[in-house]
């Protein structure tokens, strides 16, 4: 990429904006699909693919309630989560590897922006001053703290073959040499990253998003006090995170369809490819979720330690098997 002298890098802007639009449309569908798959496998009918959209529309129109003693954070927190999720969607190379010169999609930067959203939700949970909010916030941050080493180490492992932690370069290298996707190093790193994504987005076995029992909640406990559009942003924000992270995993595993040059048909094809990848990933995740139970909170570190070992193996293996 060269030349942002004109001020605006049009191809990169196109890719970023189309990624945001595509993910805003696809993420609720992914949630709807996962719920439907689970429902069908459990012998229920389910709400259908469009139910998350209907939920968000309902919440946006509802009157939000603000309890006495809550601060500006109850209002700002959901907006920050949503903004951080949108930036993450714009940064990730899910449709094209064309990025801004001055704002490369460095994985460390992406992780920090994600964490900004994590912190915003955790503070929303504390703001109302209820027992459940604090409980969810505390658990959420404990898990986030323990996930961090796995994520960064997996990033490190992925960056070694390319010599850079910039995502679009990693994906571009995989497009050029598809066999590198199935090297042991890459598979180990992706497996570690997958466990980290499950923990970070609060899916089974770390957190049960469908639970109605407050004592076992993590994410749900933090948003108990939010209502109306605040809740809508919190829900949509976390769906976008799930969509973006699942999309990233799927793209790293199957980079085909991602464009390197911007063109309207290319982008359309890439969007189509992304929806296929997301459908497969979501169906798989939902199917697995039917068969596992939520583990105790204090067993989660063991799970994360396991994924950390995988990531560590990936890094050391890449030095031992790397040519020269």
């Amino acid at each position: 990429m060269s030349g942002s002298e004109a001020g605006v890098n049009l191809p990169a802007l196109t890719v970023a904006l189309s990624q945001v639009v595509v993910l805003v449309v696809l993420s609720p569908l992914v949630i709807g699909l996962m719920r439907t798959v689970r429902a069908r496998l459990e012998g229920r009918v389910g709400g259908g693919l469009g139910q998350p959209f209907r939920d968000v529309r309902k919440l946006l129109a509802k009157e939000p309630i603000r309890a006495k003693g809550t601060s500006w954070l109850s209002v700002a927190g959901p907006l920050v989560l949503m903004a951080s999720s949108l930036v993450v969607c714009a940064l990730m190379p899910l449709l094209g590897t064309v990025t801004f010169d001055r704002m490369p999609d460095d994985l460390f930067v992406v992780v920090s922006v994600l964490l900004l959203g994590t912190v915003a939700v955790a503070l929303v949970g504390l703001d109302a001053g209820t027992a459940f909010g604090g409980m969810g916030s505390s658990r959420h941050m404990t898990i986030a703290a323990l996930v961090e080493p796995t994520v960064l180490l997996a990033v490190y492992a992925l960056s070694i073959p390319v010599g850079s932690s910039v995502l679009s370069r990693i994906v571009a290298a995989r497009l050029e040499d598809p066999t590198s996707v199935f090297s042991p190093v890459s598979l180990l790193a992706l497996l570690a990253l997958a466990i980290a994504v499950v923990a970070e987005t609060g899916r089974l076995p770390v957190d049960n998003p469908a639970t109605h029992l407050e004592l076992t909640m993590v994410h749900e406990a933090m948003v108990l006090e939010s209502s109306g559009r605040d809740l809508a942003w919190l829900e949509l924000g976390s769906w976008l995170r799930l969509g973006a992270l699942l999309g990233l995993l799927a793209t790293l595993l199957a980079p085909w369809g991602v464009v390197t040059e911007v063109s309207a048909p290319g982008l359309l094809l890439a969007a189509l490819a992304l929806s296929v990848k997301l459908t497969v990933a979501a169906t798989l995740l939902a199917t697995v979720e039917v068969f596992v139970a939520k583990v105790r909170l204090f067993r989660v570190p063991e799970l994360l330690a396991g994924s950390f070992v995988l990531a560590f193996l990936a890094v050391t293996a890449s030095y031992l098997v790397a040519p020269g």
Partner: peptide, 26 residues
């Protein structure tokens, strides 16, 4: 930019927040 977009959608002719005495707390 992202914050501005979300904020604009949030502010576009939506209903006022209703203050309540107690938070829900389940």
């Amino acid at each position: 930019l992202a914050l501005a977009v979300v904020g604009a959608v949030s502010a576009a002719g939506r209903r006022q927040r209703r203050p309540v005495e107690l938070s829900w707390g389940c």
